[in-house]
Design a binder for these strands. Structure first.
Length: 602
DNA sequence: GCCGTTTTCGGCCCGACTGTTTTCAGTCG
């Protein structure tokens, strides 16, 4: 294995975070806003960068990254070489550490933070609260009683809720509101926009978009802010309202005319980076300015599309993209990660859809910690229209999950054989697998004769979390090299949203999977949706196939496959990249190819 | 601080809402 040791453990995500922070700090200091934005833009560029930043730096090609010039290239080089950035440290030291916390308050940005800091010496949430309570904030220029009151309300929210929410809980909260909006008289078209429509793993807030006649808008708005579950109203105007739902989720509603709907849907779906790139394209290609109301001639700034209607009317987003000579770009891809170039060249993939799944793997039965028998799981899979289902119960070291010893594995194998004899007539098959622990030394939890009983083996990490990132990565790569391993389970093992993923080096793991022709599991369980979608794009580029697995313990868990498909779509995956999309016979052949012959008798 | 078919200076996406203002700045998306 190649040495994975690095001089300093900063990667491009760390550098992006530092640039992001520099942007905020410069804003707090009242720096030139365009200089500030340059750092934020550079952070975005680094977050989405495919390939090896260190290699680019070594080859002196950092300035080839859009948004990185000579100055930022030098700062990246300094970070890679020393793990630190003098400029950043000086900047951090020049401001009190608690100042950044103030920005978490809704409606409270860098300019206001700067004022309360310079005029009142407020440099923490606690001091801000005290300053509001003794009335001194309301005395400041540009502030008043209302601002002071809103800051106190915002402080309470910050303390009560964290700022991002899982797609699973967000969709559950959004569903009834969406249904109510669609059912309301006067609502012509209605859709969820924003990061939820883009199928992002975590959601900052929910955006609803409605088209309606102007005279209907106020009533729709009033009903929305009075919906069940609304905790507080942040803003309510003629076309826009913003509320906080129980659980701390923010929900925004925009109402536009039906002629504006396609433009607004596109605009509010984002991402921001995608929107900016689209507008730049409209200006360059058509000399048209694009906003949420339509296209307008760039030369006539004062006459907007809002007043005159769009220069190019579009009823749907398909028409909007066509007006820019682009193929329709699915929401999941709208991250300015090459999708516009691909759409222009007609090279967009046909993304995987939920209906493409023919089966799934990694389901737990009552043999270990699942709640359904194997037969019940198989029936549920048939109910979903699947042609196969892989059972993969825990190996013996996972004692808390009633992992199976070799003797019970043999008993389970017999049950699966008996069931398959019955299911074969219906063209359905149960694949017999196991979720086998990767032990501390990188070895597998069963001996060779036991491993040879399985149709496939899912290797999984369930312990040793105190290992260093390098050691954990080596351990996983070693398991991937094992001939009996078919796929790697929940690679980043993010058990809960609030917890950090295991500190492993995913690019190295993906490279190992490519080297050994192994499959990487895209775990669809909402609390384990793991691997950033950018890594799936990277995996695809290396030809690594994935398996979208529910890690199911109950019937309800099988529904989670939809989340896995969403993440797969964000990673540009097509049905060809996902083994679950193969028909039964081809899966049998594929698993057989990955499976070494059993040892000769003896 | 970046960028360039307007290329080494002078721009940098655009609009709604709020609260403070009497015409606008700040924040947000």
């Amino acid at each position: 294995m190649t040495a994975m040791k690095k001089a300093y453990s900063v990667d491009q995500q760390d550098i992006a975070a530092i640039f992001e922070e520099i942007g905020t700090l410069l804003e707090l200091k009242g720096e030139n806003p365009f200089r500030t934005r340059a750092y934020v833009n550079a952070a975005r560029a680094l977050e989405g960068l495919q390939g090896d930043l260190r290699q680019l730096a070594d080859e002196g090609r950092l300035t080839e990254i859009k948004g990185i010039g000579a100055d930022l290239a030098a700062k990246i080089t300094e970070l890679l070489a020393t793990g630190r950035l003098k400029f950043h440290e000086t900047l951090v030291a020049s401001l009190p550490p608690g100042l950044m916390d103030l920005l978490r308050i809704p409606g409270f940005g860098p300019k206001k933070a700067k004022v309360v800091y310079e005029r009142l010496g407020v440099d923490s949430l606690e001091k801000l609260e005290a300053a509001c309570r003794n009335g001194s904030v309301a005395q400041l220029d540009g502030f008043g009683e209302k601002s002071q009151h809103n800051i106190l309300a915002g402080l309470a929210l910050v303390r009560q809720f964290s700022s991002r929410h899982h797609i699973h809980t967000t969709r559950a909260a959004a569903q009834p509101l969406l249904a109510a909006l669609r059912a309301r008289a006067g609502v012509l078209r209605c859709e969820v926009a924003g990061s939820l429509r883009r199928q992002c793993e975590t959601i900052g807030d929910v955006d609803f978009l409605v088209s309606a006649r102007p005279e209907d808008a106020p009533g729709i708005m009033a009903d929305f802010v009075a919906s069940p579950g609304v905790l507080s109203i942040g803003a309510q105007g003629a076309t826009k309202a913003s509320v906080v739902l129980e659980g701390g989720l923010q929900a925004d509603l925009r109402v536009v005319s039906d002629a504006q709907y396609a433009f607004a849907l596109n605009y509010f779906t984002g991402s921001k980076a995608h929107n900016i790139a689209l507008r730049a394209r409209a200006l360059k290609l058509k000399q048209l300015s694009l906003n949420e109301y339509g296209f307008s001639p760039a030369a006539e700034k004062e006459k907007s599309a809002k007043e005159l209607g769009s220069r190019i009317p579009c009823r749907t987003e398909e028409e909007l993209y066509a007006a820019l000579d682009l193929a329709y770009i699915p929401p999941e891809l709208r991250e300015d990660q090459g999708e516009i170039e691909a759409a222009a060249a007609g090279r967009l993939p046909r993304l995987i859809e939920p209906g493409d799944l023919r089966g799934t793997f990694h389901c737990h039965s009552t043999w270990s910690d699942g709640r359904m028998s194997i037969a019940a799981l198989a029936n549920a899979a048939q109910g979903l229209g699947f042609a196969y289902l892989g059972v993969a119960d825990h190996s013996r070291s996972s004692r808390q999950a009633h992992g199976l010893d070799p003797e019970r594995v043999r008993q389970q194998a017999a049950e699966v054989r008996a069931l398959n004899a019955r299911f074969a007539r219906q063209g359905f098959r149960i694949f017999f697998g196991a979720e086998v622990d990767i032990l501390a030394d990188g070895a597998l939890d069963y001996d060779e004769p036991t491993l040879a009983l399985f149709d496939y083996v899912v290797a999984a990490v369930h312990g040793g979390f105190t290992l260093s990132a390098d050691a954990m990565t080596r351990r996983i790569c070693q398991a991937l090299a094992h001939p009996r391993v078919t796929m790697l389970a929940h690679p980043t093992g993010r058990l809960l949203l609030e917890r950090e993923p295991y500190a492993i080096q995913m690019p190295a793991v993906i490279a190992a999977a490519a080297r050994h022709h192994k499959i990487i599991e895209l775990n669809a369980h909402p609390y384990r949706l793991d691997m950033d979608w950018r890594l799936w794009k990277h995996a695809k580029e290396l030809g690594v196939r994935c398996a979208i697995n529910p890690d199911a313990h109950s019937l309800a868990d099988l529904q989670y496959l939809a989340y896995g498909v969403g993440i797969a779509r964000k990673g540009w995956l097509t049905s060809a990249d996902v083994i679950n999309c193969l028909p039964l016979q081809e899966v049998e052949q594929a698993l057989e190819r990955l499976r070494p012959p059993a040892h000769p008798a003896g």
